[in-house]
Design a protein around this nucleic acid. Structure first.
Lengths: 223, 223
DNA sequence: CAGGAATGTGAATACCTCTCACTTTAGGTT
DNA sequence: AACCTAAAGTGAGAGGTATTCACATTCCTG
């Protein structure tokens, strides 16, 4: 099935800690139900890819997942919760793969890590069905992982940690703001690239990287 | 009415040519119906402000506008069309006010015009009920004014025209791309500012202006 | 293998979107 | 003024969708 599903199964966490925490009405205990939950999410992703959010219905999700409509509501509070959980699964997978990427990288300059962050994000648009429709919380809401902070904020913190682990950075607050701005702008530009071209408009993607690098150059340089 | 309007359609419709052209099922001919259409849009804007898009219903719009549900469908093809029309009205108003602003400005540098563009956009977030929920086509779709081009593209063209009217710019294509990127990134950053703070986080807004100015500096300078 | 917990089910309920046959009004014509 | 047609306005009803819930089934533990 999906790459995400596999890597998750290997991890051991039946439905992922994030999903459990914030989106599920009830956490699946037995493996059979955990599998069903994942099947519903897969169905949701496929449908999102095929017909988009506007035409997505709970009945369709249930049918595609080969599950009774009641089972959907057994675990998800409402329709949006399904999409939210899916988005969390994306975010989870993203952070996981990014961590792995960066762990294997011998970056000599912080900009290399920034490139990895962007590349992995671009990669998700190309490989994860339904992701380009959702991004990180565009459609549902932007507070998936944490009700206090937006996904971009969470992402920003992650990035901040990864960067400072390898390189000395400037003032904490200032860097944090700069990263937030960079993530927000970068996110929007990648979306633009994929709106222009299903494979991601290379010209725009290149421009996005340049813009972000140049911007950060002037804000997180340690001097 | 709006400058674009005149150049675009000869109809001179009561409810704005944009709305008429792309979102209305039937153009209101008599004044009384034109007023009702506007009342429905007002209701839609207010509801968007109060309960958000997810909870918006056609029944609610009709009730708030003091109109029978049938009247809504007399002019709007479906629920999304109402929102789309509202968004067009926003865009129309934005371009009109921006044109007026710029006409009254004796800008000595292109960056001053860019600032006006951003400031007027920020202003809309503060003054137009419901606008912060929609922006330009976020929720419904990004092809409101023109099925071929996104709203940002239309905006970009407008900006391009305004700028080149006052200042010599570099290569046509290159400038166009740069403006598209700037508009996209700027849009996202303004949204971020208003997500952080209902009045618009000044720190982020300032940062947004800097980022855009610096970026454009490197792309549209005539040398 | 008994019994509670976890799951699975789908008919039923409530609410929505959108249509359409029909009534009313505007505004020009005779 | 009476008349006429197009434009407007209306709301019950058809067709869907989201969500619930009382009941059936499957696990799993003691």
């Amino acid at each position: 099935m999906s790459t995400v599903a596999k890597s998750r199964a290997e991890q051991g966490g039946v439905a992922g800690p994030h999903i459990a925490g914030a989106a599920l009405r009830r956490v699946p205990v037995q493996q059979r139900s955990a599998e069903r939950v994942n099947r519903m999410l897969d169905a949701c992703a496929a449908l999102l890819d095929e017909i988009g959010y506007a035409k997505l219905t709970t009945t369709l999700i249930a049918q595609r997942a080969d599950v009774a409509i009641g089972s959907v509501y057994q675990f998800f509070g409402d329709k949006r919760a399904v999409v939210r959980a899916l988005d969390m699964r994306y975010l989870d997978g993203y952070i996981e793969r990014l961590s792995r990427r960066i762990a294997n990288t011998t970056a000599e300059h912080w900009s290399q890590i920034v490139d990895e962050v962007i590349d992995e994000y671009i990669s998700m648009h190309r490989t994860e069905p339904g992701f380009r429709t959702l991004h990180f919380g565009d459609i549902v809401d932007v507070h998936l992982l944490d009700s206090e902070r937006s996904n971009d904020d969470v992402l920003t913190d992650r990035l901040h940690a990864m960067l400072s682990e390898h390189f000395p950075l400037g003032d904490e607050r200032q860097v944090s703001l700069a990263l937030t701005v960079a993530v927000t702008a970068g996110d929007a530009l990648v979306k633009l690239a994929f709106r222009r071209d299903p494979d991601g408009d290379d010209v725009v993607l290149t421009e996005a990287k340049t813009l972000i690098r140049d911007y950060l150059e002037r804000h997180i340089a340690t001097g």
